[in-house]
Design a binder for these strands. Sequence first.
DNA 1: TTGTAAGCGTTATCAA
DNA 2: TTGATAACGCTTACAA
Lengths: 348, 348
Amino acid sequence: MATIYDVAREAGVSSATVSHVINESRYVAADTRARVLSAIASLQYRRDGVARSLRRQKTGTIGLMIADITNPFFSEVVRSVEDAVHARGGGHNLILCNSDEDVGKERRYIDVLLERRVDGLILAPAGGNRQYLADLSASGFSLVFVDRALEGVGADAVLVDNRPAAAALTRHLIALGHRRIAVVKAGLAASSIEERVAGWRDALAEAAIPFDSDSVVLSASSVDGAYEAGMELLRRPHRPTAVFCTNNFLTLGMVRAVGAMGLSCPCDIAVAGFDDVPWASGFRPRLTVVAQPTAEIGRLAAGLLFDRLDRRRTGAPVRHLLPAQLIVRESCGNLLVRPAARMGEHVA
Amino acid sequence: MATIYDVAREAGVSSATVSHVINESRYVAADTRARVLSAIASLQYRRDGVARSLRRQKTGTIGLMIADITNPFFSEVVRSVEDAVHARGGGHNLILCNSDEDVGKERRYIDVLLERRVDGLILAPAGGNRQYLADLSASGFSLVFVDRALEGVGADAVLVDNRPAAAALTRHLIALGHRRIAVVKAGLAASSIEERVAGWRDALAEAAIPFDSDSVVLSASSVDGAYEAGMELLRRPHRPTAVFCTNNFLTLGMVRAVGAMGLSCPCDIAVAGFDDVPWASGFRPRLTVVAQPTAEIGRLAAGLLFDRLDRRRTGAPVRHLLPAQLIVRESCGNLLVRPAARMGEHVA
DNA sequence: TTGTAAGCGTTATCAA
DNA sequence: TTGATAACGCTTACAA
């Protein structure tokens, strides 16, 4: 592989001139420039980004760690981060890591990313590593949280205002006549999940529906986990009339359980959940969900990071708190006017 | 950030010894080792991977370019590649790129990846850049195709045997009594899509169903594109009784169109497609699909790449051709014994 | 308008 | 058992 010196020799100039031609970092006479360019072409020279990173002490590489790229919520966020990074130009890149919500894996990955000298990190934290991340952030490393924040870690963050959105969804269920509303809680150490359950409780309290700890069902955050949890829930003698699923895996698992029990949604049981995955509106009945602004999350997270990296912003961390949107479709039925299902889609 | 020299000074040894302690690359006396280790700890030293990459002339970084991480087919492949890379140890990493099926974008991304000196590239090619990729591969760079191959490019590949799988799916439709079977063809320059359409034609020919060019509907490879195409198809005076969608975006778009037209599946129209996305079996009716072995694809692709990188294999390119599996569920109905829908799931 | 040369932080070859 | 030192390929301050 040709180096800058090979090009310099071929063009009869110094390595500095070649560098300046490549980077347009100082004036070079037109003919010199032309000679350099043609030498580059004939030697098929390609700048070595590794050497460049070493010299410049920045890599143009950003770490992105999410729980699981297979989760449509995260894949949409990743997609929009990638678009933003790409749009910024300058050949910036993303290193992708799946933490699987595993604190140890997250920690090891962060170590690898730091060794690789990523310029910054966008992270949906698994929940542990609090001190480690606090120290990292305090040391001046650019860290941006997405989806979840860690108390006491002074990093920028892009979060969704889960609690009112969950409350709105629950209120919607209550308005349709539901009183026995279970919540399936994903077994993650994530602030977002806690907030969704809190929102559910808020709405119950408002409606003076007594809280029953049995109606909180804990489930592994996976389709299969939710299927199991759903089967258990649906087999109960006094089963709920509605279920609120705290993320899209859980919604799908619950929907499968409803099908497997030979029940029908929304007649036998209403199902609603978080995340407006593409299938939510293809599924029959179309699912009533809270949509998170995934594209916005990614875009803003990248923006916060670049603001730090470019020193456009220094000092106190910034938190974006984005609204989520209740999208009313048909999966919650209407206990008051049954069985008149309405076909329109309402955004509340 | 402390360097190896800082550690050396602190421990009273040379930089070489520190390096050897870190890499366990030669014997170091126990007490020397201990001093180095404690110096590393007290200085919070972290090896600089950039300098290391420059010196070793390898980065431990792998490029992974797919069309769109938001497509569940690709996100599952990416996930399994990442698992394989991670499982290999040694802190290897993945740089993720979305080509969006755009040849120019693909080309620019490859240039960036090469500048970053990735050790190899796993690629679902957009269809152009044939000569460029051929030259790259011929130059000794490790390239592995997934999902699609490019004729004339001598690179390793992990492919799915699309044609017989598509034929099997079509035969299934024919066996259920369908004769007017349309295919929605994704507008991509991908060998996989061509093969699926070819398989469909094979099955029609076997059953002596005359080929009608009107029954091939071209659609942008997106949910919205397929929705439009689906609406057009379903509004035809003599509409088909079954539709075969050549990827999961198209299936979803078609399902939405069926719903929007107020039609019901499978009574009014049968829908089947490629890709067993998680929602395929949550959706009612559960979708009959061809499942691609996504986990296997990623695992094998990573394996092929590592075999090259580690020189366990040299010479002629290897192609894995994996079988796809028809999963019969309820979305294709049964024109012969209607409307008896069966509930069991059959794997053919 | 261009060139010289130091230095980024490692690894690995020799030498001791 | 360990150390000195030359690369790796670039950018950039300084000099001309």
